[in-house]
Design a binder for these strands. Structure first.
Length: 427
DNA sequence: TCTGGGGTCCTAGGACCC
DNA sequence: TCTGGGGTCCTAGGACCC
């Protein structure tokens, strides 16, 4: 049996841990640049605040109900996430916990007696809540997909389930599957849901009873087959799949600007800053990149299904040799940024994407290439300083110092757990 | 006026090889 | 007049996730 432990309104919960005064108040957390609402407390949901909606549209509702607003504080959420995960690992053994995202973990419960599952799940939940202050919901079932479904039920009917749902018995499972729309399933997005409805497949139960061959043909090939298997209680997405923190195959840093940017100099500063960040990510996993891509998004209006967004201009370059050095990445990125820039155009966003990720061989090569060796030493020192200071203390001049393009963060809370001078004060 | 950021897996189709 | 078949590798794009 598998369990998924999912933090309730994670970002909101993190904000509340250090603000007991808003424990009962409605809270929302905004995306970068204060653009969208990405986390809502139950109270805020009740007032009708939608998920992923733009902040400016919900603003009047937020003000009317006196809802507490926060810009996202990733230093805080990352640190709280680590605490939640280590609590789980300590309780069930590191090897049985698979961190799936910042606020979710799969737990392998195959060693336990089925009749103890509910008790274990409840203990897990209570322990995390007591040790970290973050409330979680737990779903238990034979496969990951079904565990996610159980979790959905646990969350949806919090008072009845007490935040824990175990789908073990067949009749319970059948009832759950019949009561849930395909759209709510893990792995079914908007597009597939629409397709399924057209085939008159409405509930998870309907989908479960479709033949695998049908899914192979009409539901994304092996992806669809896996989904059907999982719904039938056959493990097709195995534990530990995302456990081995293998190197990423793509590394990107992209940001909206705080306001429209018109000058090439500002674009170049932003791109240099993002290139430096990708370099850091690259070095952290001891990789080097073969290809660098730079893109900018203008403020031209382009029609799309959801909302009007700008036009994307992209250019890429294959690097002379794979590198992880910030100076080389910036050197490659600058001409790309210049080539994309058009005089008189306004820009909303830019980004740097690295691909062709390979192991960093210059670690060995530096024995024979003293220049590279110095570069590596320099990178290590910069990373050490920036990491220990939790910020960009040392940066390349190309990144600029004024940074007028930086994103908006009007409602940022203190970094309670990662900065000495922002500790919570008790008077 | 204003709509995030970072990633994965899979498939189809083109280029190329023998 | 007429031009195979099978394989690999790579890339772009779709769909999805949190």
């Amino acid at each position: 049996m598998k369990a998924i432990v999912d933090c309730n309104s994670f970002y909101c919960s993190c904000e509340r841990v250090f603000r007991p005064d808003i424990k009962e108040k409605p809270v929302v957390v905004l995306s970068n640049n204060d653009g969208c609402i990405i986390s809502r407390s139950d109270e805020a949901k009740k007032f009708g605040v939608g998920m992923a909606g733009p902040y400016f549209q919900a603003k009047s509702l937020i003000e009317k109900h006196n809802i507490e607003v926060f810009s996202s504080n990733y230093n805080l959420y990352g640190d709280m996430s680590r605490r939640v995960m280590s609590t789980l690992k300590e309780y069930l053994g590191e090897e049985n916990v698979e961190v799936y995202s910042v606020d979710e973990a799969f737990v392998d419960l195959s060693g336990f007696d089925p009749k103890d599952l509910r008790k274990i799940a409840k203990e897990m939940k209570e322990r995390v809540e007591q040790w970290t202050g973050v409330a979680v919901s737990v779903g238990v079932a034979p496969t990951k997909t079904l565990a996610k479904l159980a979790n959905y039920i646990a969350k949806k009917h919090k008072s009845r389930t007490e935040g824990v749902a175990v789908l073990e018995a067949e009749e319970k499972l059948a009832r759950a599957l019949k009561g849930i729309g395909v759209k709510e399933l893990w792995g079914v997005g908007g597009r597939s849901a629409k397709k399924l409805e057209a085939w008159n497949i409405k509930t998870a139960w309907d989908l479960r009873n479709m033949p695998e061959e049908w899914a192979r043909k009409h539901l994304g090939g092996v992806v669809g087959v896996r989904l059907i298997k999982e719904l039938n209680g056959e493990e097709a997405i195995v534990m530990g799949d995302s456990n081995t923190p293998e190197s990423k195959r793509m590394i990107a840093t992209t940001r909206m600007f705080g306001s429209t940017v018109k000058e090439l100099s500002a674009i170049k500063e932003a791109v240099a800053t993002y290139a430096a960040r990708t370099g850091e990510k690259l070095r952290r996993q001891h990789s080097a990149a073969t290809t660098i891509q730079v893109f900018v998004v203008s403020n031209e209006k382009v029609e799309s299904t959801y909302f009007k967004h700008g036009r994307t201009y992209a250019a890429h370059q294959v690097l002379a040799s794979p590198t992880s050095f910030t100076n080389e990445l910036i050197a490659a990125a600058m001409p790309l940024a210049e080539s994309l820039y058009q005089e008189g155009m306004g820009y909303k966003k830019a980004g740097v994407i690295l691909s062709g990720i390979v192991p960093d061989t210059s670690i060995q090569a530096n024995l024979f290439e003293p220049q590279k060796g110095i570069g590596r030493f320099l990178m290590e020192q910069i990373d050490n300083i920036n990491f220990s200071m939790r910020g960009d203390v040392v940066k390349f001049a190309a990144s600029g110092t004024t940074r007028n393009w930086k994103m908006r963060q009007e409602f940022h809370s203190p970094r309670y757990t990662t900065r000495w001078n922002e500790l919570c004060e008790v008077k």
